[in-house]
Computed example of a mutant assay.
Amino acid sequence: MLFANGLVVASLLAAASAQFAQPWNKCGGEYYTGPTVCVDGWTCVYQNPYNSQCLQIASSSSDASSLASSSASS
């Protein structure tokens, strides 16, 4: 019975996360049919008519420098 409850919880979590685009993923553009809202802390940023992407927007200059350094090291 525990397995069944865990399976239900896992299914619910998967369904909830499917409603939001994940970090760095596509979230818009021509012919795109997936989620258009990004997970908390990430924003859907227009790139061109065919692509928008979930990016983490820095709120201050110190956040921007730490974001840039973490992106460069990835």
Results as ranks from 00 to 15, higher is better:
64 A>E: 14
55 L>Q: 06
3 F>E: 13
54 C>F: 00
41 G>Y: 05
69 S>Y: 07
17 S>F: 13
43 T>F: 06
49 P>M: 08
46 Y>L: 11
26 K>E: 14
62 S>I: 09
53 Q>I: 12
44 C>G: 03
48 N>T: 08
44 C>A: 06
42 W>K: 00
9 V>K: 04
27 C>I: 05
7 L>H: 06
2 L>T: 11
1 M>H: 09
24 W>V: 01
48 N>G: 07
46 Y>V: 13
24 W>I: 08
56 Q>C: 03
10 A>Q: 06
25 N>G: 06
17 S>T: 14
3 F>G: 13
33 T>F: 09
8 V>Y: 06
65 S>M: 14
30 E>I: 12
69 S>G: 03
36 T>I: 00
21 A>G: 11
41 G>L: 03
18 A>V: 03
67 L>Y: 05
6 G>Y: 11
43 T>H: 03
63 D>P: 04
19 Q>S: 13
15 A>S: 02
11 S>K: 12
35 P>S: 14
16 A>P: 00
2 L>V: 14
16 A>Y: 07
20 F>L: 12
61 S>G: 05
68 A>F: 14
69 S>K: 05
5 N>I: 13
48 N>Q: 07
61 S>E: 15
22 Q>F: 03
33 T>Q: 13
64 A>G: 10
67 L>W: 05
36 T>S: 11
51 N>R: 10
62 S>C: 10
11 S>I: 11
4 A>C: 01
56 Q>Y: 02
17 S>E: 08
66 S>L: 08
51 N>H: 10
65 S>N: 13
40 D>E: 12
5 N>R: 11
